[in-house]
Amino acid sequence: MSTELELTSWRRAVAELYAGVRAADDPAAGHALWRAGRDALFREHPQSPLAPDDPLRTTGLPCAPYDPALRSVLELLPARDADARLELDGGDDAGTVLRPVGRVELPDPVGGSLDVWWLQQYGGGLFLPLRDGSSGRAVDGFSSYGGGRYLLDTAKGADLGGDDGHLVVDLNFAYHPSCRYDSRWLCPLAPAGNTVSAVVRAGEQMPLG
């Protein structure tokens, strides 16, 4: 199979996985489905960013237990700076420009504000990254990738749903970008407007020990 068809297969699988999450009877069941699906993709798919001998293929991706308090349906508020632009390095490919389309305010126990970006590319998509107090350091046995994690990336199928003017934001679904596993991947990292000081002890985490 060509690389292009492999990537199409990967994105199709991700989109189908999130469709299953949105259709689940309850968010915890959707989270269990998501974890199993992510593990299967990273273990078996030819586009997995894991090296063939990476132990995570056997153990699965480390992930915190589901916490229902970390799921919210949040209003998309006006952007802090609607004229801002963020240009991403695309390597050998053309770069991608992001523009802010709004922000969401995270409720307690996390708090803070996150910018919601729009990918200025064919088809577009919403992008919601997160860098929190666990990014790049261990706090009470929990650590996440220093470049941050993703909550939504609808251009690639990572979409938890919502309605007109609102987004489902569930911190339990925070996941590491592919560049965390393989430096050959180029991933947009969480900018300053997507940083919170609280430690988000949810979602995928770095192996410890």
Rank of each mutant, 00 (worst) to 15 (best):
R35T: 11
R35C: 14
R35N: 11
R35Y: 02
G37S: 02
R38P: 01
R38L: 02
D39S: 10
D39H: 14
A40I: 02
A40F: 05
L41V: 12
L41N: 11
F42C: 10
F42D: 05
R43T: 08
E44C: 15
E44G: 15
E44N: 15
E44P: 13
H45L: 06
P46W: 06
P46C: 05
Q47S: 15
Q47L: 13
S48V: 09
S48G: 10
S48M: 06
P49Q: 04
P49C: 09
P49E: 03
P49Y: 05
L50E: 03
L50C: 06
A51G: 14
P52Y: 01
P52M: 00
D53H: 12
D53T: 13
D53G: 11
D53E: 14
D54Q: 08
D54A: 12
D54S: 15
D54K: 09
D54Y: 06
P55Y: 08
L56N: 11
L56Q: 13
L56R: 14
L56V: 10
R57C: 10
T58N: 03
T58A: 13
T59I: 09
T59Y: 15
T59M: 07
T59G: 14
T59V: 13
T59S: 15
G60K: 08
G60P: 12
L61F: 10
L61T: 12
P62E: 02
C63A: 14
C63K: 04
C63H: 09
C63R: 07
A64S: 05
A64P: 04
A64R: 06
P65S: 06
Y66H: 11
D67P: 11
D67A: 15
P68D: 14
P68R: 12
A69H: 07
L70H: 03
S72T: 11
V73P: 00
V73L: 08
V73K: 07
V73Q: 09
V73R: 08
L74C: 02
L74N: 00
L74K: 01
L74T: 01
L74H: 01
L74R: 00
L74M: 03
E75N: 04
E75S: 12
L76K: 04
L77W: 00
L77D: 07
L77P: 00
L77E: 09
A79V: 03
A79H: 03
A79S: 09
R80N: 08
R80S: 13
R80E: 14
R80P: 01
D81K: 01
D83M: 10
D83E: 15
D83Q: 10
D83Y: 07
A84Q: 11
A84V: 05
